[in-house]
Design a protein around this nucleic acid. Sequence first.
DNA 1: CTGAAAGCGCTAACAC
DNA 2: GTGTTAGCGCTTTCAG
Lengths: 344, 344
Amino acid sequence: MTKRRRVTIKDVARAAGVSTQTVSRVINDRPDVAEETRQQVTLVIDRLGYRPSAIARSLIRQRSFTIGVVTAGLKYIGPSRTLNGIADQAEQSGYALLLKELPSFQTREVEPIIDSLLSRHVEGIIWAVPQIGDNHEWLYSRLPDLNLPIVFLTMEDHPDLSIVYIDNYAGGCMAARHLLEQGYRRIGHITGPLDWWEAQQRQAGWQQTLEKAGLGVEPAHSAEGNWSSASGARAAVRLLEQYPRLDAIFAANDQMALGAIHVLGERGRRVPQDVGVIGFDGISEAAYFRPPLSTIDQDQHKLGCGAVTELLKRIEGGHEDGKDSGAQSVLLRPQLIVRQSTAR
Amino acid sequence: MTKRRRVTIKDVARAAGVSTQTVSRVINDRPDVAEETRQQVTLVIDRLGYRPSAIARSLIRQRSFTIGVVTAGLKYIGPSRTLNGIADQAEQSGYALLLKELPSFQTREVEPIIDSLLSRHVEGIIWAVPQIGDNHEWLYSRLPDLNLPIVFLTMEDHPDLSIVYIDNYAGGCMAARHLLEQGYRRIGHITGPLDWWEAQQRQAGWQQTLEKAGLGVEPAHSAEGNWSSASGARAAVRLLEQYPRLDAIFAANDQMALGAIHVLGERGRRVPQDVGVIGFDGISEAAYFRPPLSTIDQDQHKLGCGAVTELLKRIEGGHEDGKDSGAQSVLLRPQLIVRQSTAR
DNA sequence: CTGAAAGCGCTAACAC
DNA sequence: GTGTTAGCGCTTTCAG
């Protein structure tokens, strides 16, 4: 098995007895080629199995038709559903995807990642890493001279940035309101890790909805988890100690809700009769929990699609009239799914 | 915001008063540069924010340090865990990742995908799409003249190919054997979609283990699902009709096991006392099902890592001595995790 | 130690 | 319609 050299445009030109220019015209579907020549060249291309080099094209055209995606936590279902949306939309728009995964959600050293993408001439970047603590700090110093369209996913709104995100605050409100409507009054909350912006938002939605309903909210009414079922179970145990009279739990994701249901079952508290439970995310398994879990569904596939759409708007806007079409954010609404776990 | 031209090696050379050659030497850490010159150039590089173009390098060196990954079903947790492993290992080895997702598992038209990767000069491809029906047929006609290292994931073994996969047959055996050891004797199986190679293997392991134990296996003892919890529930209903005396169920994944547990609960069959249940995959939620689910854990992250390692062996072997180091397959063993759902 | 020339694979701009 | 020239950003000779 010998390493064969790549078939180049020169090879085709030589074999077809024309100039490379003519071959170039054929592969780019330019009109100014004699029909006969075109067919002749096409034939040779097929025979040699020639494929134009996107890399050489990138160099000369100063367009790579490639976008960079930076993710974290691909082993979790949320980020991968988002990536799924990104991949779908990018493919459909004819852009290739260069993927980088941060070693952890918290990674602050992003320079090498960005450099690596820049060196490969990406035309834009989707920063699909949720905002946690100050893991987005870098952008304030780096962005000004980066001079490349970037779309951020799932972070605090900011007038100068393109951000695509799901309204977690509204989701928190919807969860709390639904429990109230079902007649629950002492509603506890299992939060996500509170350095996550999403967790904060969901908590804020829960808290403010209860307060607006005239119900007091105390620190003892919530317990912090880390998104895992195990942490949800532990948080439920704490919550039951701190707030023994609680009659409902809003868990900040479905996995933690599962852990909570597990603990409630062990303690002999029936769901939904004694304690209502609602989750967040809309994972597909939730419909088969016991009891089936009500949840706030967020369409993360759409989130990914939206990110690509926004990014391409800015990339292609920037190419057309020499100026960026400007930052613009997109807000997606989550959706309430009612199942038995909240059916009093 | 004006679109600034990329800073090139020429810009640096001019600003530093040296030739581009010298700059090239500096950025490549060549020894033959005067220390003074090197510092001077380094300074200018930092000042201008110059980053070498990996693309231009790829052209001239005929090395892109990029590998292509083709996946499908990223919205499911399995494929994303694998991609996670691939990304980790690629990053660590200094290779960039070009990601393509097939529109569906069944996609047979792979030419455009491969072309797109080739045109971007990937040095190898990881085909992370499970074998289903004849969705791998293309490779027999295409591979011979592709002349590029490819590693396949999760397909039937084949002497001429590099394949990295988890031993699904052994996993099926382990599940069945475990149930037998717990004293269950009438063990039904909820299969995955039977055009999936993995589903076939798991089924074969189950069947042959029972047969070796002297237990008869009939068609009525299994029902087909499609991996989803909903399909698992439906399959469980059928299985209970076809095989009412069954005392255990081996579900080909954890989601379907969840659906089955749900149905068993509705019918008043206690798990594990009346019916033992074991799943496959080792999703993290399984520990919090009711009851906690025994399962056959497969390390898909490691699968991804292994794929990259194999691929790089072939890429780098190929570069060193002008010949491919040859196809070689890697087999990973799954692992039994015992929880309450099979504790008679 | 440093620079000049050539060229990776392709296309834009201009000739013919 | 088609070919020639130049050059994208870089590295590889090979001189000096």
